[in-house]
C-alpha cells in the first residue's frame, strides 16, 4: 500500500571497535518509492543495508523492515526482501537459469517465475549460457533477476551500476524505474553516483561517516539548502557543511581514486576494508 512505511530505523548505530560506521541513524522509507542512499565510500550505506537485512547486528538502536524486526525475524525479512550486493558474485559454472533455480530452492519457491525474471532483465536469450562467460553488465542484470526471483516487496540495490559502461548503466536504470510500476516494488538504491540516483530516486538520504546529513526529496533539499540546482550541488553543500574544507578534495559522481572521505572506511573485522 502506497505511503506505508516499509523501512524504519530508530537511532540505528554500528560500531567496530572504536570506529562508528553508522551513527544514530533515524529515517523511514515509504512503499512504492525509489529511495536513494547517498554518501561517499565509508559513509555507512552498505552497513545500514546489512543491518536492515539482519545480516549485521546493530550496536545500538533498532529498525523495522516491512513491520518486522530483522534481528528477531531474520528469515521472514530475508524472504520478503531482495538484496543485490555491491560485489555481486556469480557461480561461474552455473547458467543464469540454474542460478535462479538455486536461489528459488533456498527460498522454498516450488514454481519460480524464472523465465519472467530473465525476460524482464533481458537475459532470456542467454539463460542457458554459463554465467562465467557473462559480461559485467549481464552479471549485474543476473543479480537483479536473482533479487526478483523471490518476488520481494522491497529490494536493496547496493551500487547496482558499479563498473558498467554507459549503455549498461542506462539499461540498469531503466529496469530500476520499471520495477516499482510493474512489480509494486519499493527500492532502496545505495550509490555514490549522484547524477544516476537523481534520475530515478524520489527521495534521498545523504550520509557521511555514518551520520545522516539530510533526508528528503531532491527539490525539497535544494529548497532547504537555498541552492537552486541538481543533486550534486545539494550533496556538496551538505557534505561541505559536515566536512569543511575536506570536501574540496572529494571527487563526486566519478571514480577517481580515494580522497578524504572516499578512502577506506572501517572494516567489519577491524579498520581497513572498503565499503
Amino acid at each position: 500500500m502506497a505511503g506505508e512505511k516499509v523501512v524504519e530505523t530508530f537511532g540505528l548505530t554500528k560500531t567496530y571497535g572504536r570506529e562508528t560506521v553508522v551513527n544514530n541513524l533515524s529515517l523511514s522509507i515509504e512503499s512504492g518509492e525509489i529511495f536513494g542512499l547517498l554518501g561517499p565510500n565509508g559513509a555507512g550505506k552498505t552497513t545500514t543495508l546489512l543491518m536492515l537485512l539482519g545480516l549485521s547486528e546493530p550496536s545500538g538502536g533498532h529498525c523495522r523492515v516491512l513491520g518486522l524486526d530483522p534481528l528477531k525475524k531474520p528469515l521472514e525479512v530475508k524472504s520478503k526482501v531482495g538484496y543485490m550486493a555491491e560485489n555481486m558474485g556469480i557461480f561461474p559454472e552455473l547458467t543464469a537459469r540454474e542460478h535462479l533455480r538455486f536461489l528459488a530452492d533456498l527460498n522454498g519457491i516450488k514454481k519460480p517465475a524464472i523465465n519472467d525474471c530473465l525476460e524482464l532483465v533481458g537475459l532470456l536469450g542467454a539463460a542457458d549460457k554459463k554465467a562465467g562467460a557473462y559480461s559485467r553488465g549481464m552479471r549485474q542484470r543476473l543479480g537483479l533477476a536473482e533479487t526478483l526471483i523471490k518476488e520481494p516487496k522491497l529490494a536493496f540495490l547496493d551500487e547496482p551500476t558499479l563498473g558498467l559502461d554507459p549503455d549498461g548503466i542506462a539499461t540498469m536504470l531503466e529496469l530500476i524505474v520499471r520495477l516499482p510500476k510493474e512489480k509494486g516494488l519499493t527500492i532502496v538504491l545505495s550509490s555514490h553516483l549522484l547524477h544516476l540516483v537523481e534520475r530515478v530516486a524520489g527521495k534521498v538520504a545523504i550520509l557521511n561517516q555514518g551520520r545522516l546529513l539530510a533526508l528528503g526529496g531532491v527539490g525539497e533539499l535544494s529548497e532547504k539548502s537555498g541552492l537552486p540546482g541538481d543533486l550534486e550541488t545539494v550533496y556538496r553543500h551538505y557534505l561541505k557543511a559536515d566536512m569543511g574544507s575536506e570536501i574540496d578534495g572529494l571527487v563526486l559522481g566519478q571514480e577517481k581514486g580515494p580522497g578524504p572521505g572516499q578512502g577506506q572506511g572501517p572494516s567489519p573485522d577491524g579498520p581497513g576494508a572498503l565499503t
Partner: peptide, 16 residues
C-alpha cells in the same frame, strides 16, 4: 565465496 561475493548472496536468502 566471500571474495567472489557469493557468500553475501547466499546469506541474504532465508536460511540460517
Amino acid at each position: 565465496e566471500r571474495n567472489q561475493g557469493t557468500l553475501s548472496k547466499i546469506l541474504s536468502q532465508p536460511i540460517y
